[in-house]
Amino acid sequence: MKPIKALVFDLYGTLYDVHSVAGACGERFPGRGLEISILWRQKQLEYTWLRTLMGDYVPFEKATDDALDFVASHLKLSLTTAAHKDLCDAYLRLQPYPGVEATLTSLRERGLPLAILSNGSSFSIGSVVKNSGLDHLFDHLISVESTKVFKPHDAVYRLAENALGWSRDEILFVSSNGWDACGARHFGYQVCWVNRNGNTLDVLGQKPDFAVTDLRELPDLVGNAVMS
Rank of each mutant, 00 (worst) to 15 (best):
H74Q: 13
P30W: 07
L221D: 03
I125C: 01
L172Y: 07
Q44T: 12
S122M: 02
L92E: 10
L94Q: 01
H186A: 15
K148S: 13
E27M: 08
L215D: 04
S78D: 14
E217D: 14
I38E: 03
L137A: 04
N119F: 01
T147Y: 00
P152Q: 05
G33N: 03
W40F: 02
G26Y: 05
S121V: 10
R41Y: 00
A90I: 09
A63S: 15
G120Q: 02
L11G: 00
L75G: 05
L68K: 06
G205W: 08
R168C: 15
L79W: 10
H186W: 09
L79H: 07
A82M: 09
K85A: 15
Q206Y: 11
K2P: 15
T200P: 00
L77Q: 07
P59K: 01
A115N: 06
F29R: 09
S37T: 05
Y57K: 02
T103F: 11
G205F: 08
I38D: 03
L104W: 05
R196P: 15
H186I: 10
R108T: 10
L77E: 07
D86S: 15
A211D: 04
D66Q: 04
R216S: 12
G99E: 09
H140C: 05
Y57F: 14
M1S: 13
F173V: 10
T147R: 12
L92T: 11
A90N: 06
G205M: 06
R216V: 08
L112H: 05
S118F: 04
W49M: 03
N224C: 04
L92R: 14
C88F: 00
I4S: 07
F210H: 15
L11W: 02
Y47A: 03
P59W: 03
L117Y: 09
Q44Y: 06
L117R: 06
Q42Y: 07
A155C: 01
S143K: 04
N195Y: 08
E35S: 08
D89W: 04
G223R: 15
G223F: 03
V174Y: 09
V194H: 03
P98R: 07
S127R: 14
D154Q: 13
D202V: 13
D65K: 07
L34K: 01
V129L: 08
L218I: 15
T14R: 00
T200S: 11
A211N: 05
F173W: 04
R158N: 12
V128L: 08
